[in-house]
Simulated scan of single mutants.
Amino acid sequence: MTTFITICDTCKREDWDETKNDRTHGEELAELVEAQAQRRSVETRRVSCLMGCTHGCNIAIQAEGKLSYTLGRFEPNPEDAEAIVDYAELHAQSDSGQVPFKQWPQGVKGHFVTRIPPLPGGDKV
């Protein structure tokens, strides 16, 4: 099963300023995550709004039949993008989507917002 990184491309962090920024922080993060995900075992997709505005920049890690996670409060920088993709690959390798804390990349610690169980009928947890 494919693990997807869903990236909110409309996210704006508190310091976003339309006079200084020509793109949203979400667009910048999406571009960085997409670049990191190339030739790796996860897929990316963009959506307009994950409704986590107070946690911008937001992403979701999802795969059919597995736990899903929403993470936020990222910076649109290469280090955060790499940590997101590294975590998503660990999610992909897990049967249930649960990754032991000791394996989490440092860059995702403190960024988890929600954990969503799989829909009934496909849960492996």
Rank of each mutant, 00 (worst) to 15 (best):
L90G: 12
R45W: 02
Q93R: 06
R46C: 01
H55Q: 14
A63T: 03
V108D: 15
L32K: 05
C57P: 03
E18N: 11
E18H: 09
D22E: 10
G122R: 06
R115V: 05
A63Q: 04
D86K: 15
A81Q: 02
K124S: 15
M1E: 03
A30H: 02
I61K: 07
L50M: 15
A35G: 05
L119A: 11
P117R: 05
V85E: 08
R23V: 03
N21K: 04
V85S: 12
Q62H: 02
P120W: 02
E64C: 08
V33W: 04
L119E: 10
R40V: 00
P105F: 07
E89M: 08
L67Y: 08
E28D: 15
P118G: 02
E89N: 07
G72I: 06
R45S: 08
C8G: 10
E14Y: 02
T70A: 15
P117E: 11
I116E: 14
E43Y: 04
D86Y: 12
V85N: 13
D9T: 05
K12N: 02
C53N: 09
E34I: 03
P105H: 06
F101A: 13
T10P: 01
L119Y: 06
I116F: 13
R40G: 05
G56T: 03
C57Y: 00
N77K: 14
Y69I: 05
